[in-house]
């Protein structure tokens, strides 16, 4: 088999506007982190409006259903607080962990990552923008669940605003985890499965009152990032909440959030260039 050499075309055959002496071309500017994060966030939010509203209803009804169910199990009082806080944060876990793991798993399997990987955008912007869009989409569901739970168990609504801190911080921690799982899973079905497992863990460990659990399960509960969001919100039901401890819980959430989002950005880079 012979290789036919490329022939040099006569110059008239091509239009060469400027065959200048510059051999190394100047690189186009890369997209900066913040503007591209905002662009991804905006695009994802518009996408969520169409595709995710039914799922958000599912997430909310699921959590409301759990509070109703637990009404028959727990007495009013201390335990009710962790049920309400846990099921409110569960909405975040459903969307940020489960749905985001699915989304990135499918994006990776369907070749969609190539689109982002051939644009000069920082990996963190794609991961953070997507995660932020998913997390902010959980806000209404979380609030609805919390209000419903408080009314059902007769808990005070005064400190509901704490959720505005709990949702982004627990959301960051859980969505980073979800994105990393989706990007690292070798197959999209596995990403879905891991997301489901994470969500089940958040359900069992977050909603059920911890005092009834064996030691080992309680340890697992401490390892789950959403736990600290649940605890932070649960503490604000006290008559005189210990704000320092609430802040510490939120601090743990934020710390885990930073770590898990960094892990997700690393996973993205690994998945994009093979």
């Amino acid at each position: 088999m012979s290789v036919v050499p490329a022939q040099v075309l006569p110059d008239t055959a091509r239009s060469v506007p400027e065959a200048g002496p510059v051999v190394v071309a100047e690189l186009a500017p890369a997209a900066r982190l913040w503007p591209s994060l905002v662009a991804v966030y905006r695009a994802q939010l518009s996408r969520a409006r169409v595709a995710r509203i039914p799922l958000l209803f599912v997430a909310t009804f699921q959590s409301i259903g759990i509070t109703v169910m637990m009404r028959g199990v727990v007495d009013n009082g201390f335990e009710a607080r962790s049920v309400v806080a846990g099921s409110a944060v569960l909405v975040v876990a459903f969307v940020a962990l489960n749905l985001l793991a699915q989304y990135f798993g499918q994006l990776r399997a369907g070749g969609g990552l190539d689109h982002y990987a051939t644009l000069p955008v920082p990996p963190a912007a794609v991961v953070l923008g997507t995660a932020a869009a998913y997390a902010s989409f959980t806000v209404p569901g979380t609030l609805v669940t919390a209000v419903f739970g408080c009314v059902l168990f007769g808990l005070p609504l005064a400190n509901l605003w704490v959720l505005l801190a709990v949702v982004p911080l627990a959301g960051a921690a859980l969505s980073g985890l979800g994105a990393a799982l989706g990007l690292l899973a070798p197959r999209p079905e596995l990403a879905t499965l891991l997301g489901q497992l994470g969500m089940s863990a958040a359900l069992l460990l977050g909603v059920l009152p911890p005092d009834r659990m064996p030691e080992l399960v309680r340890l697992a509960r401490d390892l789950l990032p959403s736990t600290y969001g649940v605890e932070a919100y649960a503490r604000t039901f006290d008559t005189h909440p210990d704000w320092a401890v609430v802040l510490a819980d939120l601090g743990v959430c934020a710390g885990v959030g930073v770590i898990s989002l960094a892990a997700a950005a690393w996973a993205y880079r690994r998945a994009a260039v093979r």
Binding site: A28, A30, R47, L107, G111, D114, H115, T118, L119
Partner: peptide, 16 residues
């Protein structure tokens, strides 16, 4: 990414 624009075969990232 700063030198070329690429049109792949998939549009999954933009579909929605």
């Amino acid at each position: 990414a700063r030198l070329l624009a690429y049109l792949g075969q998939e549009s999954t990232a933009l579909d929605e």
